[in-house]
């Protein structure tokens, strides 16, 4: 077990807004309701949860952009509330999406700009920028304006920007959002390479396979509360005895879906529509009892594929965060 570099203890954060011109109504939203966890040096730690769970708020608190309303945070032994100037040289963060870069500047100039802001000595700048551009595969377009880049290229440039000060801890808020599978794979490879070089990484993501592949430990949060923290392997063990029946149907109506979800031994049903095929995933402890029931409910000529699978991290997530969805 490495040294603890991030310690979050009972952190609360409330957003207060006022609505109305003359008769103002105050509204309070409790984004985080007393969250505690810790991250060790060299870990890749995933923060997972649905929209509005409090993931981005947590990242902003850890990156000195927000002040908590309660609880304490320690980054490498420093308090980001009172010692934010000392914390900032040791961290950096990357936000998902295409913004957060200067589109009118070239890739090189974007990095040079932030190198100056992080006070990287001029003698080191050139080599470091070229190294980073090579790491993210943008060395051939170094002097091209960012506005000509694809979304994946912009995202990779953001990674390079986030590494310009060689941070000890890198925060990533949904870094692969909107990326095509090849770009997302490339991004994951870069993150693994960084981690091998010793960078501690905290990332939020909606993609369970991404978290499963990258993270040493994962925290699920929902409605501002921590649900669980563990390794992906241990989490999947929580579903021991659970099987997933994945069934591809050419035709299914709402009535049949309702009937499927009411079958005995079915704990959860998830439906995905992909062109002509509807994929349903049923969580059950007794697949041998559920499969005949499926054949009874659905005309077998409509079943194009049926398989029994091991639960994935997504199934654990559904069970813990979205278990009420049945």
């Amino acid at each position: 077990m490495g040294e603890t570099v991030i310690m979050v203890s009972n952190v609360r954060r409330v957003y207060k807004t006022e609505v109305g011109l003359f008769k103002k109504t105050k509204k309070e939203v409790e984004a985080l309701k007393g969250i505690s966890f810790s991250i060790n040096r060299g870990e890749i730690f995933g923060l997972l949860g649905p929209n509005g769970a409090g993931k981005t708020t947590m990242i902003k608190l850890l990156t000195t952009m927000l002040i908590p309303d309660g609880g304490t945070i320690s980054i490498m032994g420093m308090d980001p509330v009172t010692q934010h100037r000392k914390v900032r040289p040791h961290i950096n963060f990357i936000l998902g999406g295409e913004r957060n870069l200067y589109w009118r500047l070239s890739a090189y100039d974007n990095l040079a700009y932030f190198a100056d802001l992080y006070k990287v000595p001029r003698v080191e700048q050139k080599n470091r920028i070229l190294e980073l551009l090579e790491l993210v595969g943008l060395e051939d377009v170094a002097h091209q304006r960012v506005e000509t880049f694809s979304k994946g290229m912009k995202q990779r440039l953001q990674i390079a920007r986030g590494l310009i000060n060689r941070p000890d801890i890198l925060f990533l808020d949904e870094p692969s959002i909107g990326l095509d599978p090849v770009s997302a794979r490339r991004l994951r490879d870069i993150l693994l390479k960084l981690n091998e070089q010793g960078t501690t990484i905290l990332l939020t993501t909606h993609y369970m396979y991404e978290a499963d592949e990258l993270c040493d430990r994962i925290a699920f949060i929902d409605k501002g509360q921590l649900i669980t923290v563990d390794t992906p392997e241990n989490m999947k063990r929580q579903t021991a005895g659970l099987s997933i029946i994945e069934c591809k149907l050419t035709e299914v109506d709402a009535g049949k879906m309702e009937a499927l979800s009411r079958l005995p031994h079915v704990r959860h049903v998830k439906q995905e529509q992909d062109d002509m095929i509807t994929t349903i995933r049923l969580q059950t402890e007794m697949p041998q009892a559920v499969i005949p029931a499926i054949y009874q409910l659905v005309d077998e000529t409509n079943i194009s594929d049926l398989a029994i699978m091991q639960p994935t991290l997504e199934d654990v997530y559904v069970q813990l965060v979205g278990g009420h969805a049945k």
Binding site: R85, P89, R99, N100, L101, Y118, K119
Partner: peptide, 18 residues
């Protein structure tokens, strides 16, 4: 508007000379 202000403000550089 570009979403870069929070990145700039979160850097260790002094804001006055900036």
């Amino acid at each position: 508007g570009m979403g870069t202000l929070q990145l700039v403000m979160s850097t260790p550089s002094s804001k006055a000379p900036l």
